[in-house]
Design a protein around this nucleic acid. Structure first.
Lengths: 348, 348
DNA sequence: TATCGGATAGAAAGCGCTTGCCCCACTCGT
DNA sequence: ACGAGTGGGGCAAGCGCTTTCTATCCGATA
């Protein structure tokens, strides 16, 4: 029924061992033999049995990429870059690897389950992207799982995610705190004193770091930070819209709204516009990430650019062992403040 | 070193067979025994060997999702929906499946290679999203591969992709032609007579169908279609920008620009705005897809909404055999015209 | 010319799991 | 009380491939 190595061997009049060697190309095989085998493979339309091969060789060519939300370009861009380096088909890498991206939907359980699934498959490497959940038991569980993976020889890289100490995982963390700090500083520099802040979900590291940067900037400038000026929500447009409505309800005198990310900022803009406020004349808006659409917003969004593609590419290379991991296994990736039309001097 | 089934069996004082049955839960096992086994699994921190299991059972729990560009929300949204139904961890489905999304980057070769890789892994199902390339040899190669997959028991579903006759694959195709037709009709209805069209890459089905719909609408209305009013480009913002510059250079009297998709439309808006043209006062702009950001554009984009998430979910269910495939294996999904601020009566 | 070593190819032992088949010990039916 | 039925569990044969260890064949070396 299904063609096996043995069938190919029979047809090429060689032993299965030889066919295997031709296919894996890590053992000398005479050119004539090789050709005969290859022809047989072709004629029989043979396709290697992955599981069997992985079992026998005790390795697999699967590489997992975990993302929080695959529909969000933030993750899409990173995943794309990682995958290009992993060298799925057509990539630079030699062997063909199956880069699989797994969508955790931000759920800790699914994250864990996916890690187990990848462990099951004896994945060659795993890259986790995006912020982590700050729930202690879960963090511990993930850490334990990561340790197990690295111990089993799976290379683990965290991309845009805080380091996981003692797990053997490499980390490329975004400087969310610093970026947020500079962003708020910019707004303060323009003269804003009443800034609303739309934060992401409570329990995520990314949320906390960005919020901390924002507050640190306020504190450093000696500017008040009314707790009512901070609202938590999801990392999406809808949430930004709602949060802004709430923010302006709580205090219509706000002159700037800082959003957890660009999508949220877009929602904020929509809400402001609908309530008849002009951007930036009446209210300045700022985002984070600098996704491709941010420059096309009207007015273009002031934000912090995160080198998503570069970081992803680097993470991918490290995962494939094609780039030296950073010293100490940890590197911080800075974001760059992009000042655009959505922020300006507050109204008199 | 690594814990195997046998180790668990030894520890639980049962045979390996029993452990396997407990783990797969498709065979009666006494509650007490089951518990003993489960405890041993836990104590030993046992993780099933996926390849070995797939080999022995001749099936795997891998489900492949092929997308053209994972950084594009168009695909991200579909992938997300598909995956939710596949029931990766936490999904509705019972067994835990590893939904893997593969990024072909629009390259025919990579598409083929990924299919082979999935075939290697004996994937349980494969969902291909997005338009196909119209290169005859490649189309034939893909069709052959799909046939092979379905013959091997892998369920294949095409989502937002034209049917592949005689391959055993189910298809959920978008009515690109119809959608484009209605969109252009709308513009014509407003009074536009000189419409620029920014098409996608030449050789894709999606591109051709949308263009055909556009032209059919023009023809039906007896409106001229100057070949110089059509420009081809990529499906991204940048391309839309460039194409629009070119279009306005060729004929500054155009009163409307129809874009291949929303991203392209956004680029078009940017280009128009930069040349001092107002939207829609001077030039109307229309997109396609209705991605989440389209409603936030200023002015909001007139476009054709494609039920990406719904179609993806349905494709996912069909792939899992949880929904009856459409009669004849083929269904067409209509798009809905969304008239918004970016289109209006042309200037006098 | 006898001997060696390199280059190839084959034999066979698993890799860790699933599952068909068989067996045992009970519980029932009569 | 005895044979049939049945739930629970073990045996062992693979699944298709990789890889170590051998066995050959040659031209090269002495």
């Amino acid at each position: 029924m299904t063609v096996t190595l043995a069938d190919v061997a029979a047809r090429a009049q060689v032993s299965p061992a030889t066919v295997s060697r031709v296919l894996n190309g890590n053992y000398p095989v005479a050119a004539s033999t090789r050709e005969r085998v290859l022809r047989a493979v072709d004629e029989l339309d043979y396709v290697l049995n992955g599981p069997a091969s992985s079992l026998a060789a005790a390795t697999s060519d699967l590489v997992g990429i975990l993302v929080n939300d695959i529909a969000d370009p933030f993750f899409g861009i990173m995943a794309s870059a990682i995958q290009a380096e992993i060298g799925g088909p057509g990539g630079r890498a030699g062997g063909e690897r199956l880069a699989v991206v797994c969508n955790t939907g931000g759920s800790p359980e699914r994250e864990l389950t996916y890690l187990t699934l990848l462990q099951r498959q004896r994945a060659a490497a795993v890259v986790l992207t995006g912020g982590a959940v700050e729930d202690a038991p879960h963090a511990a569980a993930v850490a334990a799982k990561l340790r197990k993976l690295t111990e089993a020889g799976t290379r683990v890289v965290l991309c845009g995610r805080p380091p996981a100490p003692d797990t053997g995982a490499y980390a490329l963390a975004f400087d969310n705190r610093g970026g947020a700090h500079r962003l708020t500083e910019h707004l303060l520099g323009l003269g804003h004193r009443r800034l609303g802040y739309i934060a992401g979900p409570e329990e995520r590291t990314t949320t906390r770091h960005r919020l901390e940067g924002h507050r640190a900037a306020l504190a450093a400038a000696g500017v008040e930070d009314d707790p009512r000026w901070t609202v938590h929500g999801r990392y999406d447009r809808q949430s930004g819209y709602e949060a802004t409505v709430e923010l302006m309800r709580r205090d219509p005198s706000l002159t700037a709204v800082v959003a957890a990310n660009d999508s949220v900022a877009l929602g904020a803009c929509a809400a402001l516009r609908e309530s008849g406020l002009r951007i930036p004349a009446d209210v300045s808006v700022a985002g984070f990430d600098d996704l491709p659409f941010s420059v096309d917003a009207v007015p273009a969004l002031t934000t912090v650019r995160l080198p998503l593609a570069e970081a992803g590419a680097r993470a991918g290379r490290i995962a494939m062992g094609r780039e030296e991991p950073p010293p100490g296994g940890i590197a911080t990736v800075r974001g760059e403040l992009m000042v655009r039309g959505s922020s300006a001097v507050p109204r008199a």
